[in-house]
């Protein structure tokens, strides 16, 4: 469904990701792990159209979409749940959802609001509250709910459990499972690598801007030395199984 080929993105003189290639098949849950600064957020932001790549291409269902603006990506069915959620704090829960449904028609929007409330009952209770006053767990649910408002086929999630208590981490992963059951495709960046690897069909390990390992989730999990590879103990190049 999503194809990324030799994608390179720079900030000024910094090359944040270098010739990264990956594929995500329809209906898959794909994990993206790696230490901070590895370029995971940059990769997602580039795919979502928020950053322009310096080189390489992004394909969606075989059609090139490199450099498309975020709203065009959204209209093609790709939604990003950004790092640190980026809720509109002064807007109410309802307004946050309405903005997120701006690409849908009025009827669709109403329908999706209903679906979202069903999926996240807690948001229904906080309908008129300003998003800035939500608790961490509620805020994360709203962030994911916003992405669902455009009925995306592919959801890019950037650190969905960041700053959440363990109980809420469970909630998020449960949700990832449910989204998969709905037939959606997910590309998830997550600190909680073990948990993500168990939930994902496949995963890529990103380190200093390049992919250093890939494989099925369970298989990566079982590989000896993953922890070391992940956090960079041992010099570069000695990544097991890369």
């Amino acid at each position: 469904m999503l194809g990324v080929e030799r994608l390179t993105t720079r900030y000024g003189s910094i090359t944040a990701i270098r010739e990264v290639s990956l594929r995500v098949g329809a209906g898959e849950v794909v994990g993206l792990i790696g230490p901070n600064g590895a370029g995971k957020t940059t990769l997602l932001a580039t795919v979502a159209g928020l950053l322009d790549p310096a080189a390489g291409r992004v394909e969606l269902d075989g059609r090139e979409v490199t450099g498309a603006s975020p709203d065009r990506m959204l209209r093609r069915g790709v939604a990003l749940v950004p790092e640190r959620r980026r809720l509109f704090a002064d807007l109410t829960v309802q307004e946050n959802l309405l903005v997120a449904g701006i690409t849908a028609t009025g009827g669709e929007r109403r329908e999706r609001l209903g679906e979202v409330v069903e999926l996240f009952p807690v948001l229904g209770q906080k309908w008129g509250a300003q998003a800035g006053y939500l608790s961490g767990g509620e805020a994360q649910q709203l962030a994911i709910a916003r992405a669902l408002m455009s009925n995306p086929r592919l959801i890019l999630m950037d650190e969905p459990t960041l700053g959440l208590a363990p109980v809420l981490v469970d909630v998020v992963f449960e949700l990832i499972g449910r989204l998969r059951e709905q037939g959606r495709t997910l590309l998830v960046v997550e600190q909680n690598a073990r948990r993500l690897l168990r939930a994902a069909d496949r995963a890529y390990v990103l380190r200093t801007g390049s992919i250093v390992a890939e494989g099925a989730g369970d298989e990566l999990l079982a590989r000896p030395g993953l922890f070391e590879a992940y956090v960079g103990v041992g010099a570069g190049g000695e990544v097991p199984g890369a």
Binding site: A48, P70, D71, R86, F88, A89, D90, T103, S150
Partner: peptide, 11 residues
């Protein structure tokens, strides 16, 4: 409030 986040929502 957040221009980039709004763009991500399709604005």
């Amino acid at each position: 409030e957040d221009f980039d986040a709004a763009r991500l929502m399709g604005v």
